[in-house]
Design a protein around this nucleic acid. Structure first.
Lengths: 224, 224
DNA sequence: CCGCAAATAATCCATTTGGATTAGAAAGGA
DNA sequence: TCCTTTCTAATCCAAATGGATTATTTGCGG
């Protein structure tokens, strides 16, 4: 069975070239539009059983851009999968498009064959197609602290980092406050030597060999 | 030129099969380890110019798991790229691994040929390899508002803090990286004693009297 | 030309730290 | 009960740090 798709792009030649190339595969282009508003209007006129199952959506468009169109479209037509198709890989746009409900995100420099392949695969295993460059950008987004996991701390904080024992975490907290071994010792009512021993154990678990390195690692990995 | 990689997996047969298959390509396996601690220990014994450029890291391992190993490893060896390689696609784990500094994330059901391909591509265009299933999971993670974009607080602080001279700020930056006096000295082409003198001057300006205190203050005040 | 602030450098000395090793007591699981 | 982990503690030694002081050089402003 063929896949019904829609193409939304303000550049007529983009629309036609893509449509031509995809039509040679098992993909059937049932709707084209030149911007978000045009797309939504045309969707309204379609009978429910004629709806495309996939929409290839350009991001940069006049009148109504791809992000807004996806936001509205994914609400009005929950069963339709929206794939962003753009030359832009600006992090902010990617983030917004995904938030708006994009199911996949492809770069325009993918070949039509590639796009057809990915759409077919998507149909088979229900995974949103994502270009490697975009996947990498998303990963960086998550990595660079520009994004944070805001779930309930219940599931987040369960694991003791680096298998530090309770006592060792306690020591680490004092350590990063700049206390000397002897100060840690008297703070915790243990001997200076014991305090030092704990610190050495922490170093070995963290694979560092100085207070500064331990502190820097702790900061970077959010242990404290 | 070939790519030097390390394989870290607690299952011996996994290690050997993967190593055998990858060795038939342009990839050279220079290190294998059975868990995170084993890996870090073996890395410590390697000369800097013998370090692998890529590490394939299993996630689930006894003693020290892949997430912790990547956290420490990406700190200790910033130039090394860590690729998670696992059968698990739990969202929480993916998120943590990425946060810890993973450069890519592959599922174990990828064929060795596929993995070799992806590593080669990674070497060429410097994009972290990501299995489609994982990319999809990450996208869902961002989508399901379990994650939020936190805009950076802009360039608020540009003033020279604490009247530190240019040179002193330079020293401070090296200091917080955990360098010894002698290392700071050779880094800046000055004598160990001079490096130390600068540090002492910094201490007196910041009103602290140890590296840790200076680092903690720097962190708190956002000097770095 | 003078003066001053930085940067450079060295010396002495006490303290702190890092590293390795050994060892006993307590607690908890197999 | 035995075994393992954790916490406790100590010792020895080399290296690094902190603190104080003195001194030369350099560059800039008045």
């Amino acid at each position: 069975m063929s896949i019904q798709i829609a193409i939304v792009d303000d550049n007529p030649s983009n629309r036609h070239i893509l449509k031509d190339k995809l039509t040679r595969t098992r993909i059937e282009v049932v709707l084209t539009a030149e911007n978000g508003r045009d797309f939504l209007n045309k969707m309204k006129e379609l009978q429910v059983d004629k709806l495309p199952s996939v929409v290839l959506m350009d991001v940069e468009m006049p009148e109504m851009d791809g992000v807004d169109a996806v936001a509205a479209g994914s609400y009005l037509y929950p069963s339709v999968k929206f794939i962003m198709l753009t030359i832009f890989d600006d992090e902010e746009k990617i983030f917004k498009a995904i938030k708006a409900g994009a199911f996949g995100y492809l770069l325009k420099d993918e070949s039509a064959e590639n796009i057809a392949d990915m759409l077919t695969q998507m149909h088979e295993n229900n995974l949103g197609p994502i270009s490697p460059g975009i996947a990498h950008k998303i990963l960086k987004l998550v990595q660079n602290n520009t994004v944070t996991l805001s779930q309930k701390p219940a599931a987040v904080k369960e694991k003791t980092p680096f298998n530090l024992t309770e006592r060792e975490q306690e020591i680490l907290r004092l350590l990063v406050q700049g206390l000397l071994y002897k100060e840690i010792g008297s703070e915790l009512q243990i001997s200076t030597n014991t305090a030092k021993k704990h610190v050495m154990n922490i170093y070995s678990k963290l694979h560092v060999n100085s207070k500064i390195q331990a502190l820097t690692l702790a900061h970077e990995k959010g242990l404290i």
